[in-house]
Design a binder for these strands. Sequence first.
RNA 1: GGAGAAAUACCCAAGUGGCUCAAGGGGCUCCCCUGCUAAGGGAGUAGUGUGGAUAAUACUGCAGCGAGGGUUCGAAUCCCUCUUUCUCCGCCA
Length: 426
Amino acid sequence: MIDINLILNETEKVKQALAKKGCFADLSEIIQLDGERKALIRRTDALKAERNAASAMVPKLKKEGKDVSEIIARTRMIGEEIAAGDKKLSIVAEKLSDLVSRLPNLPDDDLLPGEKENNKVIKVFGTKPEFDGYKPLDHVSLCAKSGLIDYERGTKLSGAGHWIYRGKGAQLEWALLNFFISEHLSDGYEFILPPLALGYDCGYGSGQFPKFVEEVYWVENAEESDRKKMKFMLPTAETALVNLYAGEILKEADLPKKLFAYTPCFRKEAGSYRAEERGMIRGHQFNKVEMVQITTPDKSKEAFEELVNKACSLMEKLGLHFRLSKLAAGDCSASMARTYDIEVWIPSMGIYKEVSSVSNANDYQARRNGTRYKDANGKNTFVHTLNGSGLATSRVFPALVEQYQQPGGSIIVPEVLRKWTGFDKI
RNA sequence: GGAGAAAUACCCAAGUGGCUCAAGGGGCUCCCCUGCUAAGGGAGUAGUGUGGAUAAUACUGCAGCGAGGGUUCGAAUCCCUCUUUCUCCGCCA
């Protein structure tokens, strides 16, 4: 949620920033509605003050045996006016908050405008693996060959976009998660296992709703139109973590909060790239460890660097070839002011695929869900929220088996995972 | 899933229509007295949101007693819906 005062006071600046993200919303309607809202508040508040004063006199006059019917008649009329004013106010206020809440976050000043074509590779880690004298297999074949993943029975149980980790595949998957978890623990992050089905407010508070209400799985009777009372399966643990302190006022001394969670993530991924993205590149359910920091505005740049470094460090320790990209304004998701993607090399596809997205929402999410802290001057201030995958296994797994494959389709297990897998080769 | 009870500030808690713009404790902050592993006296302590007016965190209106509605001139108090917690019953692949 963008600060309404910023829209009022620096309209042009906001307009230009939104344009960088490809949003050309009409701000004048917002400004006009806010004026209306304030005028209505002034009027009804004055009426309420009048009614309060008049009502307060009633018991005194009654005691003195005076006739109060005139006062009561008048305050009744005032009451009707107040009711009408309040009704109008709530309509205006709701319209206003709906418009403002649909605006995406303002991108940081240093971002290029536009979409993917303006993303910039910042750094490349490692080199593409060489496959001397043999043709490397894609991860689907590799996994099938070693029985790591059971695609057929996955779709049998739950349809397209679902797979089953089996045997050593399950062990490798779990080893990755254990590795990520142990790294975050040693960096002093708090381990969170949140509910997987969340209420509407979490979706709104993270900035994913109302935009993505159709992209998540709703748990309770889907016919029901009132989604605000329903639960949905979380599409990422970010949705839970950034709402952990919603509505609370934290102490500055307790910040930053450094959290991470392991959850499966559930996404409809309707109408997507199935043919191109075989195997587990894009599924309806995948495992992810998500990092979140909740911090003061002055520390948020620092926190962002930390999260980017952490994500890169995980990839480096796995020994995978990947690159780090800075996204253009339009390619950042709506809630985010800045995003860096970590993309891993998938040899069979000949492209880099996202394994982690590290983002800073600034105070956009905090404004939506009401997470604040009391600063040194005793003023309540919105926190900054940051999140980053650390990491999503559904992309790491295929990259790993492809990059570590040997002639004949065997796979070397990266050193750091061996204490979790218990084997060094598949 | 059913029945009953509850929700007031940092904590405990009074309060069944105006005398509560929420009593009283505890805790915390400040002051005084005493003087040192004590004790006593006094003052302060409703955050927050949202308007107005500001140099201002000074001042002021409104809202606010779990949330949202309703009744009323007036609601913490009466009514309805919801949420959460507790107790009991049921269910438990």
